[in-house]
Design a protein around this nucleic acid. Structure first.
Lengths: 222, 222
DNA sequence: ATAATATGTTAGACGTTTCTAACTTTAATT
DNA sequence: AATTAAAGTTAGAAACGTCTAACATATTAT
Protein backbone atom coordinates (compact mmCIF):
# COMPACT_ATOMS: atom_id res chain seq x y z
CA UNK A 1 0.00 0.00 0.00
CA UNK A 2 1.36 3.37 -0.97
CA UNK A 3 0.90 6.10 1.63
CA UNK A 4 -1.19 9.12 0.77
CA UNK A 5 2.02 11.06 0.21
CA UNK A 6 3.41 8.42 -2.12
CA UNK A 7 0.14 8.41 -4.01
CA UNK A 8 0.44 12.13 -4.59
CA UNK A 9 3.96 11.71 -5.95
CA UNK A 10 2.85 8.94 -8.29
CA UNK A 11 -0.05 10.99 -9.54
CA UNK A 12 2.15 14.00 -10.22
CA UNK A 13 4.73 11.89 -11.99
CA UNK A 14 2.04 10.36 -14.17
CA UNK A 15 0.42 13.67 -15.05
CA UNK A 16 3.75 15.34 -15.74
CA UNK A 17 4.81 12.47 -17.99
CA UNK A 18 1.67 12.95 -20.03
CA UNK A 19 2.12 16.65 -20.51
CA UNK A 20 5.89 17.00 -20.88
CA UNK A 21 8.54 14.82 -22.40
CA UNK A 22 11.06 14.18 -19.66
CA UNK A 23 10.35 14.85 -16.02
CA UNK A 24 12.97 16.15 -13.64
CA UNK A 25 13.05 16.73 -9.91
CA UNK A 26 12.45 20.44 -10.30
CA UNK A 27 9.17 19.89 -12.16
CA UNK A 28 8.06 17.41 -9.57
CA UNK A 29 8.95 19.61 -6.63
CA UNK A 30 7.11 22.55 -8.19
CA UNK A 31 3.99 20.54 -8.88
CA UNK A 32 3.88 19.21 -5.33
CA UNK A 33 5.08 22.44 -3.77
CA UNK A 34 7.85 20.76 -1.84
CA UNK A 35 11.58 21.36 -1.73
CA UNK A 36 13.87 19.65 -4.23
CA UNK A 37 15.68 17.55 -1.59
CA UNK A 38 12.35 16.28 -0.32
CA UNK A 39 11.35 15.27 -3.83
CA UNK A 40 14.76 13.67 -4.23
CA UNK A 41 14.38 11.48 -1.19
CA UNK A 42 10.90 10.35 -2.16
CA UNK A 43 12.12 9.59 -5.67
CA UNK A 44 14.73 7.29 -4.16
CA UNK A 45 12.07 5.62 -2.10
CA UNK A 46 9.79 5.07 -5.09
CA UNK A 47 12.76 3.68 -6.96
CA UNK A 48 13.47 1.21 -4.17
CA UNK A 49 9.82 0.19 -4.21
CA UNK A 50 10.01 -0.58 -7.91
CA UNK A 51 7.58 2.15 -8.90
CA UNK A 52 10.07 4.40 -10.66
CA UNK A 53 13.12 3.90 -12.85
CA UNK A 54 15.78 6.25 -11.71
CA UNK A 55 19.48 6.90 -11.97
CA UNK A 56 21.27 9.87 -10.49
CA UNK A 57 20.93 12.99 -12.61
CA UNK A 58 18.68 11.19 -15.08
CA UNK A 59 15.01 11.87 -15.87
CA UNK A 60 12.22 10.30 -13.82
CA UNK A 61 10.29 7.51 -15.51
CA UNK A 62 7.53 5.49 -13.86
CA UNK A 63 7.73 1.72 -14.16
CA UNK A 64 4.71 -0.19 -15.48
CA UNK A 65 3.77 -0.88 -11.86
CA UNK A 66 4.12 2.78 -10.94
CA UNK A 67 2.08 3.86 -13.92
CA UNK A 68 -0.70 1.48 -13.03
CA UNK A 69 -0.83 2.62 -9.43
CA UNK A 70 -0.87 6.22 -10.56
CA UNK A 71 -3.60 5.62 -13.11
CA UNK A 72 -5.77 3.95 -10.48
CA UNK A 73 -5.47 6.97 -8.22
CA UNK A 74 -6.35 9.24 -11.11
CA UNK A 75 -9.27 6.93 -11.82
CA UNK A 76 -10.54 7.50 -8.29
CA UNK A 77 -10.01 11.24 -8.62
CA UNK A 78 -11.87 11.57 -11.91
CA UNK A 79 -14.69 9.21 -10.95
CA UNK A 80 -15.15 11.30 -7.84
CA UNK A 81 -15.24 14.53 -9.81
CA UNK A 82 -17.86 13.07 -12.11
CA UNK A 83 -19.86 11.82 -9.15
CA UNK A 84 -19.76 15.18 -7.42
CA UNK A 85 -21.00 16.94 -10.55
CA UNK A 86 -23.52 14.43 -11.87
CA UNK A 87 -24.97 12.99 -8.70
CA UNK A 88 -24.36 15.58 -6.04
CA UNK A 89 -24.92 18.65 -8.17
CA UNK A 90 -21.61 20.47 -7.70
CA UNK A 91 -20.24 22.80 -10.36
CA UNK A 92 -17.19 21.67 -12.32
CA UNK A 93 -15.18 24.43 -10.66
CA UNK A 94 -15.92 23.08 -7.16
CA UNK A 95 -14.91 19.48 -7.39
CA UNK A 96 -11.13 19.35 -7.65
CA UNK A 97 -10.33 20.08 -4.01
CA UNK A 98 -12.81 17.51 -2.74
CA UNK A 99 -11.68 14.84 -5.22
CA UNK A 100 -8.09 15.55 -4.21
CA UNK A 101 -8.97 14.17 -0.80
CA UNK A 102 -11.43 11.43 -1.73
CA UNK A 103 -9.00 9.90 -4.22
CA UNK A 104 -7.08 8.49 -1.25
CA UNK A 105 -10.04 6.60 0.19
CA UNK A 106 -9.32 2.89 0.28
CA UNK A 107 -12.50 1.06 -0.73
CA UNK A 108 -13.10 -0.67 -4.01
CA UNK A 109 -16.78 -1.02 -3.19
CA UNK A 110 -17.14 2.73 -2.79
CA UNK A 111 -15.63 3.63 -6.15
CA UNK A 112 -17.30 0.71 -7.91
CA UNK A 113 -20.64 1.98 -6.69
CA UNK A 114 -19.89 5.49 -7.93
CA UNK A 115 -18.93 4.01 -11.27
CA UNK A 116 -22.20 2.11 -11.42
CA UNK A 117 -24.35 5.07 -10.40
CA UNK A 118 -22.67 7.05 -13.17
CA UNK A 119 -23.17 4.23 -15.70
CA UNK A 120 -19.44 3.70 -16.14
CA UNK A 121 -18.33 7.08 -17.44
CA UNK A 122 -15.21 7.39 -19.61
CA UNK A 123 -14.53 11.07 -19.06
CA UNK A 124 -14.58 13.42 -16.08
CA UNK A 125 -16.41 16.76 -15.93
CA UNK A 126 -13.47 18.49 -17.62
CA UNK A 127 -13.31 16.01 -20.47
CA UNK A 128 -10.27 14.13 -19.17
CA UNK A 129 -10.38 10.37 -19.65
CA UNK A 130 -11.09 8.12 -16.66
CA UNK A 131 -8.64 5.21 -16.55
CA UNK A 132 -10.33 1.80 -16.42
CA UNK A 133 -9.97 -0.65 -13.52
CA UNK A 134 -6.72 -1.94 -14.96
CA UNK A 135 -5.28 1.53 -15.18
CA UNK A 136 -5.63 1.73 -18.95
CA UNK A 137 -6.51 5.06 -20.49
CA UNK A 138 -8.12 5.38 -23.89
CA UNK A 139 -6.73 8.61 -25.20
CA UNK A 140 -8.82 10.58 -27.60
CA UNK A 141 -7.01 13.07 -29.73
CA UNK A 142 -8.61 16.45 -29.68
CA UNK A 143 -7.47 19.64 -31.35
CA UNK A 144 -6.80 22.87 -29.58
CA UNK A 145 -9.39 25.44 -30.57
CA UNK A 146 -6.46 27.80 -31.14
CA UNK A 147 -5.31 25.61 -34.01
CA UNK A 148 -8.61 25.60 -35.85
CA UNK A 149 -9.43 27.73 -38.87
CA UNK A 150 -12.03 30.42 -39.41
CA UNK A 151 -15.24 28.96 -40.75
CA UNK A 152 -14.94 25.66 -38.89
CA UNK A 153 -17.66 24.40 -36.60
CA UNK A 154 -16.32 22.29 -33.75
CA UNK A 155 -17.56 20.69 -30.56
CA UNK A 156 -16.05 21.62 -27.17
CA UNK A 157 -14.80 18.30 -25.82
CA UNK A 158 -12.27 18.90 -23.06
CA UNK A 159 -9.96 21.36 -21.32
CA UNK A 160 -6.20 21.40 -21.06
CA UNK A 161 -6.27 23.24 -17.73
CA UNK A 162 -8.96 23.10 -15.07
CA UNK A 163 -8.08 25.79 -12.55
CA UNK A 164 -11.03 27.06 -10.65
CA UNK A 165 -10.50 30.56 -12.07
CA UNK A 166 -10.55 29.30 -15.64
CA UNK A 167 -13.66 27.24 -15.00
CA UNK A 168 -15.43 30.22 -13.45
CA UNK A 169 -14.48 32.23 -16.50
CA UNK A 170 -16.00 29.57 -18.74
CA UNK A 171 -19.15 29.60 -16.63
CA UNK A 172 -19.38 33.37 -17.06
CA UNK A 173 -19.24 32.86 -20.83
CA UNK A 174 -21.92 30.19 -20.75
CA UNK A 175 -19.51 27.54 -21.97
CA UNK A 176 -19.81 23.85 -21.19
CA UNK A 177 -18.61 20.60 -22.72
CA UNK A 178 -20.54 19.41 -25.76
CA UNK A 179 -21.35 22.90 -27.06
CA UNK A 180 -20.94 23.51 -30.78
CA UNK A 181 -18.74 26.47 -31.51
CA UNK A 182 -18.62 28.28 -34.82
CA UNK A 183 -15.41 30.13 -35.57
CA UNK A 184 -16.22 33.32 -37.43
CA UNK A 185 -12.84 34.93 -37.72
CA UNK A 186 -9.35 34.96 -36.27
CA UNK A 187 -7.41 38.16 -35.71
CA UNK A 188 -4.00 37.68 -37.27
CA UNK A 189 -2.18 39.91 -34.81
CA UNK A 190 -3.07 38.31 -31.49
CA UNK A 191 -4.83 35.14 -32.69
CA UNK A 192 -8.00 36.10 -30.87
CA UNK A 193 -11.12 34.43 -32.22
CA UNK A 194 -14.65 35.56 -32.76
CA UNK A 195 -16.89 32.62 -31.99
CA UNK A 196 -20.61 31.96 -31.70
CA UNK A 197 -22.47 29.24 -29.82
CA UNK A 198 -25.85 28.55 -28.27
CA UNK A 199 -27.23 31.86 -26.99
CA UNK A 200 -24.01 33.71 -27.69
CA UNK A 201 -23.92 35.37 -31.10
CA UNK A 202 -20.49 36.83 -30.84
CA UNK A 203 -17.82 36.19 -28.23
CA UNK A 204 -14.17 36.97 -28.45
CA UNK A 205 -11.71 34.42 -27.07
CA UNK A 206 -8.11 35.41 -26.55
CA UNK A 207 -5.40 32.94 -27.48
CA UNK A 208 -4.92 32.28 -23.77
CA UNK A 209 -8.46 30.88 -23.78
CA UNK A 210 -8.52 29.14 -27.16
CA UNK A 211 -5.33 27.25 -26.31
CA UNK A 212 -7.02 25.76 -23.27
CA UNK A 213 -10.09 24.51 -25.11
CA UNK A 214 -9.95 21.10 -26.79
CA UNK A 215 -12.42 20.44 -29.56
CA UNK A 216 -13.64 17.69 -31.82
CA UNK A 217 -13.72 18.67 -35.44
CA UNK A 218 -16.66 17.20 -37.28
CA UNK A 219 -15.32 14.67 -39.74
CA UNK A 220 -15.52 16.41 -43.12
CA UNK A 221 -15.95 13.03 -44.87
CA UNK A 222 -19.35 12.40 -43.37
CA UNK B 1 -6.91 22.11 12.41
CA UNK B 2 -6.64 18.83 14.20
CA UNK B 3 -4.68 16.14 12.33
CA UNK B 4 -6.43 12.97 11.30
CA UNK B 5 -4.79 11.24 14.23
CA UNK B 6 -5.95 13.87 16.69
CA UNK B 7 -9.44 13.61 15.24
CA UNK B 8 -9.47 9.90 15.94
CA UNK B 9 -8.43 10.48 19.53
CA UNK B 10 -11.11 13.12 20.01
CA UNK B 11 -13.75 10.85 18.55
CA UNK B 12 -12.76 7.94 20.80
CA UNK B 13 -12.70 10.16 23.86
CA UNK B 14 -16.15 11.46 23.02
CA UNK B 15 -17.63 8.03 22.37
CA UNK B 16 -16.04 6.54 25.49
CA UNK B 17 -17.34 9.40 27.62
CA UNK B 18 -20.86 8.66 26.40
CA UNK B 19 -20.72 4.98 27.18
CA UNK B 20 -18.69 4.85 30.38
CA UNK B 21 -18.39 7.15 33.34
CA UNK B 22 -14.74 8.03 33.65
CA UNK B 23 -12.26 7.42 30.86
CA UNK B 24 -8.72 6.37 31.51
CA UNK B 25 -5.68 5.90 29.32
CA UNK B 26 -6.12 2.15 29.20
CA UNK B 27 -9.61 2.44 27.73
CA UNK B 28 -8.41 4.94 25.17
CA UNK B 29 -5.41 2.89 24.14
CA UNK B 30 -7.58 -0.20 23.74
CA UNK B 31 -10.17 1.58 21.62
CA UNK B 32 -7.50 3.02 19.32
CA UNK B 33 -5.33 -0.09 19.42
CA UNK B 34 -2.22 1.84 20.38
CA UNK B 35 0.18 1.46 23.29
CA UNK B 36 -0.51 3.23 26.55
CA UNK B 37 2.56 5.51 26.31
CA UNK B 38 1.44 6.62 22.86
CA UNK B 39 -2.00 7.46 24.21
CA UNK B 40 -0.35 9.24 27.10
CA UNK B 41 1.68 11.52 24.87
CA UNK B 42 -1.29 12.40 22.69
CA UNK B 43 -3.35 13.11 25.77
CA UNK B 44 -0.71 15.61 26.84
CA UNK B 45 -0.80 17.19 23.42
CA UNK B 46 -4.59 17.50 23.43
CA UNK B 47 -4.35 19.01 26.88
CA UNK B 48 -1.87 21.63 25.66
CA UNK B 49 -4.19 22.42 22.77
CA UNK B 50 -7.05 23.07 25.17
CA UNK B 51 -9.14 20.15 23.93
CA UNK B 52 -8.86 18.01 27.03
CA UNK B 53 -8.78 18.63 30.78
CA UNK B 54 -6.10 16.48 32.26
CA UNK B 55 -4.00 16.06 35.34
CA UNK B 56 -1.54 13.28 35.92
CA UNK B 57 -3.20 10.08 37.07
CA UNK B 58 -6.66 11.65 36.76
CA UNK B 59 -9.48 10.69 34.37
CA UNK B 60 -9.67 12.15 30.88
CA UNK B 61 -12.37 14.76 30.28
CA UNK B 62 -12.87 16.66 27.03
CA UNK B 63 -13.21 20.44 27.26
CA UNK B 64 -16.22 22.11 25.62
CA UNK B 65 -13.98 22.85 22.64
CA UNK B 66 -12.81 19.25 22.46
CA UNK B 67 -16.35 17.97 22.73
CA UNK B 68 -17.49 20.18 19.92
CA UNK B 69 -14.66 19.15 17.62
CA UNK B 70 -15.34 15.51 18.39
CA UNK B 71 -19.07 15.87 17.77
CA UNK B 72 -18.43 17.49 14.41
CA UNK B 73 -16.28 14.56 13.33
CA UNK B 74 -18.96 12.15 14.49
CA UNK B 75 -21.45 14.25 12.54
CA UNK B 76 -19.40 13.71 9.40
CA UNK B 77 -19.13 9.99 10.12
CA UNK B 78 -22.82 9.47 10.68
CA UNK B 79 -23.93 11.68 7.80
CA UNK B 80 -21.63 9.66 5.58
CA UNK B 81 -23.05 6.37 6.81
CA UNK B 82 -26.56 7.59 6.13
CA UNK B 83 -25.54 8.82 2.70
CA UNK B 84 -23.90 5.52 1.81
CA UNK B 85 -27.02 3.59 2.79
CA UNK B 86 -29.76 5.89 1.56
CA UNK B 87 -28.23 7.36 -1.58
CA UNK B 88 -25.61 4.87 -2.66
CA UNK B 89 -27.43 1.71 -1.70
CA UNK B 90 -24.94 0.12 0.67
CA UNK B 91 -26.04 -2.21 3.45
CA UNK B 92 -25.78 -0.95 7.03
CA UNK B 93 -23.08 -3.54 7.68
CA UNK B 94 -20.86 -2.13 4.90
CA UNK B 95 -20.64 1.53 5.74
CA UNK B 96 -18.54 1.88 8.87
CA UNK B 97 -15.12 1.33 7.29
CA UNK B 98 -15.81 3.77 4.48
CA UNK B 99 -17.23 6.42 6.81
CA UNK B 100 -14.20 5.96 9.05
CA UNK B 101 -12.13 7.39 6.22
CA UNK B 102 -14.54 9.95 4.78
CA UNK B 103 -15.11 11.54 8.20
CA UNK B 104 -11.68 13.17 7.82
CA UNK B 105 -12.48 14.91 4.54
CA UNK B 106 -12.19 18.66 4.93
CA UNK B 107 -15.04 20.24 3.00
CA UNK B 108 -18.10 21.83 4.49
CA UNK B 109 -19.73 21.99 1.07
CA UNK B 110 -19.41 18.23 0.66
CA UNK B 111 -21.08 17.33 3.93
CA UNK B 112 -23.66 20.09 3.62
CA UNK B 113 -24.66 18.65 0.28
CA UNK B 114 -24.97 15.15 1.73
CA UNK B 115 -27.11 16.60 4.50
CA UNK B 116 -29.34 18.29 1.96
CA UNK B 117 -29.67 15.24 -0.28
CA UNK B 118 -30.71 13.28 2.81
CA UNK B 119 -33.19 15.98 3.89
CA UNK B 120 -31.27 16.72 7.08
CA UNK B 121 -31.41 13.38 8.86
CA UNK B 122 -31.19 13.19 12.64
CA UNK B 123 -30.11 9.57 12.96
CA UNK B 124 -27.65 7.33 11.16
CA UNK B 125 -28.45 3.87 9.72
CA UNK B 126 -27.89 2.27 13.13
CA UNK B 127 -30.21 4.67 14.94
CA UNK B 128 -27.43 6.77 16.46
CA UNK B 129 -28.09 10.51 16.59
CA UNK B 130 -26.31 12.79 14.11
CA UNK B 131 -24.89 15.87 15.91
CA UNK B 132 -26.03 19.16 14.38
CA UNK B 133 -23.68 21.71 12.81
CA UNK B 134 -22.91 23.17 16.22
CA UNK B 135 -21.99 19.78 17.58
CA UNK B 136 -25.17 19.45 19.64
CA UNK B 137 -26.70 16.01 19.97
CA UNK B 138 -30.36 15.48 20.81
CA UNK B 139 -30.34 12.29 22.80
CA UNK B 140 -33.39 10.12 22.69
CA UNK B 141 -33.84 7.69 25.50
CA UNK B 142 -34.57 4.22 24.31
CA UNK B 143 -34.99 1.06 26.32
CA UNK B 144 -33.00 -2.07 25.84
CA UNK B 145 -35.20 -4.84 24.48
CA UNK B 146 -33.72 -7.02 27.21
CA UNK B 147 -35.42 -4.86 29.82
CA UNK B 148 -38.88 -5.12 28.34
CA UNK B 149 -41.63 -7.40 29.59
CA UNK B 150 -43.46 -10.25 27.93
CA UNK B 151 -46.60 -9.05 26.17
CA UNK B 152 -45.14 -5.67 25.19
CA UNK B 153 -45.07 -4.49 21.62
CA UNK B 154 -42.14 -2.21 20.88
CA UNK B 155 -40.47 -0.59 17.89
CA UNK B 156 -36.84 -1.31 17.04
CA UNK B 157 -35.20 2.12 17.10
CA UNK B 158 -31.43 1.76 17.42
CA UNK B 159 -28.50 -0.51 18.24
CA UNK B 160 -26.00 -0.31 21.06
CA UNK B 161 -23.29 -2.04 19.01
CA UNK B 162 -22.84 -1.97 15.26
CA UNK B 163 -20.16 -4.52 14.48
CA UNK B 164 -20.37 -5.91 11.03
CA UNK B 165 -20.97 -9.41 12.41
CA UNK B 166 -23.89 -8.29 14.54
CA UNK B 167 -25.41 -6.38 11.60
CA UNK B 168 -25.09 -9.42 9.36
CA UNK B 169 -26.79 -11.46 12.03
CA UNK B 170 -29.66 -8.97 12.15
CA UNK B 171 -29.91 -9.13 8.34
CA UNK B 172 -30.16 -12.90 8.54
CA UNK B 173 -33.08 -12.52 10.94
CA UNK B 174 -34.81 -10.00 8.69
CA UNK B 175 -34.46 -7.25 11.29
CA UNK B 176 -34.26 -3.57 10.47
CA UNK B 177 -34.94 -0.31 12.27
CA UNK B 178 -38.58 0.66 12.56
CA UNK B 179 -39.89 -2.89 12.82
CA UNK B 180 -42.56 -3.61 15.44
CA UNK B 181 -41.61 -6.46 17.71
CA UNK B 182 -44.03 -8.37 19.88
CA UNK B 183 -42.55 -10.03 22.93
CA UNK B 184 -44.31 -13.32 23.51
CA UNK B 185 -42.36 -14.74 26.39
CA UNK B 186 -39.11 -14.52 28.28
CA UNK B 187 -37.25 -17.57 29.54
CA UNK B 188 -36.44 -16.93 33.19
CA UNK B 189 -33.25 -18.97 33.18
CA UNK B 190 -31.26 -17.34 30.38
CA UNK B 191 -33.47 -14.30 29.66
CA UNK B 192 -33.93 -15.41 26.06
CA UNK B 193 -37.01 -13.97 24.38
CA UNK B 194 -39.52 -15.34 21.94
CA UNK B 195 -40.47 -12.50 19.63
CA UNK B 196 -42.57 -12.07 16.50
CA UNK B 197 -42.38 -9.41 13.80
CA UNK B 198 -43.26 -8.86 10.16
CA UNK B 199 -42.86 -12.19 8.38
CA UNK B 200 -41.36 -13.89 11.41
CA UNK B 201 -43.89 -15.65 13.61
CA UNK B 202 -41.48 -16.89 16.19
CA UNK B 203 -37.84 -16.01 16.67
CA UNK B 204 -35.75 -16.58 19.73
CA UNK B 205 -33.32 -13.81 20.76
CA UNK B 206 -30.64 -14.59 23.30
CA UNK B 207 -29.86 -11.99 25.94
CA UNK B 208 -26.67 -11.17 24.04
CA UNK B 209 -28.94 -10.00 21.22
CA UNK B 210 -31.74 -8.36 23.18
CA UNK B 211 -29.25 -6.27 25.12
CA UNK B 212 -27.97 -4.79 21.88
CA UNK B 213 -31.37 -3.77 20.56
CA UNK B 214 -32.84 -0.42 21.61
CA UNK B 215 -36.55 0.01 21.33
CA UNK B 216 -39.25 2.61 21.70
CA UNK B 217 -42.10 1.51 23.88
CA UNK B 218 -45.41 2.75 22.62
CA UNK B 219 -46.70 5.26 25.14
CA UNK B 220 -49.33 3.34 27.10
CA UNK B 221 -51.22 6.62 27.75
CA UNK B 222 -52.14 7.10 24.12
C1' DA C 1 36.52 26.05 -23.34
C1' DT C 2 35.55 28.34 -19.55
C1' DA C 3 32.48 30.64 -16.72
C1' DA C 4 27.94 31.15 -15.22
C1' DT C 5 23.62 29.08 -14.33
C1' DA C 6 20.53 25.50 -13.51
C1' DT C 7 19.77 21.17 -11.58
C1' DG C 8 20.60 17.42 -8.40
C1' DT C 9 22.70 15.28 -4.09
C1' DT C 10 24.14 14.75 0.68
C1' DA C 11 24.12 15.81 5.46
C1' DG C 12 21.88 17.03 9.35
C1' DA C 13 17.83 18.54 11.64
C1' DC C 14 12.87 18.71 13.15
C1' DG C 15 7.84 17.56 14.18
C1' DT C 16 4.54 13.60 14.24
C1' DT C 17 3.19 9.38 15.67
C1' DT C 18 4.45 5.27 17.00
C1' DC C 19 7.04 1.70 19.83
C1' DT C 20 9.52 -0.96 24.09
C1' DA C 21 11.76 -0.96 28.50
C1' DA C 22 12.18 0.77 32.95
C1' DC C 23 10.15 3.09 36.56
C1' DT C 24 6.36 5.36 39.58
C1' DT C 25 1.93 5.99 41.43
C1' DT C 26 -2.60 4.49 42.63
C1' DA C 27 -5.91 0.93 43.65
C1' DA C 28 -7.14 -3.65 45.25
C1' DT C 29 -6.47 -7.69 48.16
C1' DT C 30 -5.49 -10.15 51.97
C1' DA D 1 -1.00 -2.02 56.78
C1' DA D 2 1.65 -4.38 53.65
C1' DT D 3 1.81 -6.60 49.50
C1' DT D 4 0.37 -7.31 44.94
C1' DA D 5 -1.68 -5.82 40.84
C1' DA D 6 -3.21 -2.36 37.74
C1' DA D 7 -2.59 1.94 35.68
C1' DG D 8 0.22 5.75 34.33
C1' DT D 9 4.74 8.10 33.30
C1' DT D 10 9.35 8.87 31.47
C1' DA D 11 13.16 7.97 28.50
C1' DG D 12 14.94 6.69 24.38
C1' DA D 13 14.45 5.08 19.71
C1' DA D 14 12.51 4.59 15.00
C1' DA D 15 9.85 5.58 10.49
C1' DC D 16 7.91 9.18 7.76
C1' DG D 17 7.86 13.38 5.44
C1' DT D 18 9.52 17.66 5.60
C1' DC D 19 13.12 21.48 5.74
C1' DT D 20 17.84 24.39 4.98
C1' DA D 21 22.69 24.65 4.04
C1' DA D 22 26.51 23.05 1.70
C1' DC D 23 28.31 20.72 -2.02
C1' DA D 24 28.43 18.29 -6.79
C1' DT D 25 27.18 17.67 -11.52
C1' DA D 26 25.16 19.12 -15.96
C1' DT D 27 23.81 22.47 -19.14
C1' DT D 28 24.03 26.93 -21.35
C1' DA D 29 26.13 30.95 -22.99
C1' DT D 30 29.76 33.78 -24.04
Amino acid sequence: MASQTEENYLKSLFLLANSKGEINLTDLSKMLEISIPTANSMVNKLHEKGLLNYEKYKPLVLTAKGKKEAALIIRKHRLTEMYLVEIMGFGWEQVHEIAEQIEHINSNAFFDRMDELLSFPTIDPHGSPIPDKNGKISWKSYDKLSECKAGQTVKLAALTHSSSDFLKFLNSKGLSLGLKLKIHSIEAFDKSMIVSYHNHKQEQFSQMVSERLLVETTNPNL
